[in-house]
Design a binder for these strands. Sequence first.
DNA 1: CGAGATTCATGTGAAGTATACCTTTAGGCTTAA
DNA 2: AAGCCTAAAGGTATACTTCACATGAATCTCGTA
Length: 398
Amino acid sequence: MQDLSGYFEGFIKKNSIFVNKKVLLPSYCPEKILHREKQIEDIAKILAPSLKLEKPSNLFIYGKTGTGKTVTVRHVLSNLMSVSKKNNIPLKLVYVNCKLKKIADTEYRVVAQLAREFGKEIPTTGLPTDEVYNVLFNAIEKERGVIIIVLDEIDQLIKKTGDEILYNFTRIDSELKNTLLSIVGISNDLFFLNNLDPRVKSSLSEEEIVFEPYNAIQIQDILRTRVSEVFEEGVLAEGVIEKCAAYAARDHGDARRAIELLRVAAEIADRTNQKNIRIEHVDEAEEKIERDTVFYVIDNQPKQYQLTLFALFSLNNQSTVYTGDIYSYYKKLCVKAGLRPLTQRRISDILAEFDMLGLITAKVVSKGRYGRTREINLSIPNTIKQTIFASLKNNLGL
DNA sequence: CGAGATTCATGTGAAGTATACCTTTAGGCTTAA
DNA sequence: AAGCCTAAAGGTATACTTCACATGAATCTCGTA
């Protein structure tokens, strides 16, 4: 056993470049949200009636990732909440993220999760979905006040499981007697509402708010306000903020990404005992983030999914790959790994899921005489691919 | 030569199966009157 | 007789399989110019 006390002692003495790191964490909810004044005001106006015990309109919010949808909604809601508390208004807020695998990614699970938010115990399986709806309905009805339910990333859920849930919510909404229910849906997909049952559409999206992407200047603003709380003066080198903003604005003005970049860059600098953050650190952070997110996504997949992915990785050297190639290689791997192979039908679905997750780009093409298949390309940079490949290999014991 | 038929490899939908879990209910056992 | 526990019966969600049919352009076929 090595003696680590020296290291730990040093760790205490070492002054980190962070003054208050949590300001850069994704969970942080800033006091003031920049460049979203209009949206804040709109949402506030729409939800304000709840304070007078009038039913607020249902609301739909669109915007790409990192345009501040979630933060803004949270911000407005927490203000709303504190006012309602102060004035003793029976108001309850419920937030569910519909993207979380195994938690809220099917109709049953979302409804169950909501019921749990009301303190009900709902088993993971076994109950009829209708029954869970009843439990939820009764729980809501018993609240006697105003309830606002926020469904984040709802487009993912609908795409996967159909729009029955929304339909059922409108039904619940109209049958409630003692409680006023308002639903706030948050979607990344701007055209999401178009392929929805018109009845659901009209009743659920009484109001709509769009979040435009931030531009580079706005992202810089956002970063600057946070930076002043996180670092001492002079820790940031010239151009770091600009670089973070530029990276983030590159695809679609993703502020979350910009903040994360800055944080990770700072962590890298901090860990190597450097006194300031320079542009190289941002580059390094960019790569690390990419790697970590992909890692995270892959790590959370079931074994069969990982194996499929591994087969895909192995074959990817030959430009584009087709479903058949993957399946036959996958089967070989199953033998090697001692797993019972899934059917091609299932693998086809799994590949479609990877497409949804953004790990691959798959296009169904007809190759005439040579049949019809998915043309699959990995959408992961090569540098990262190597590391993940190795870890998958290790993970699967190959 | 070109229109229409054919073909291939797999997409895709529907229905069925296995598994894990839930509630209900009937029966059996215990207990107390 | 009432109360409590248990185990079987009957039901559900989910992940997966089976079956069957759909796709759609490259290729083939064959009548026609």
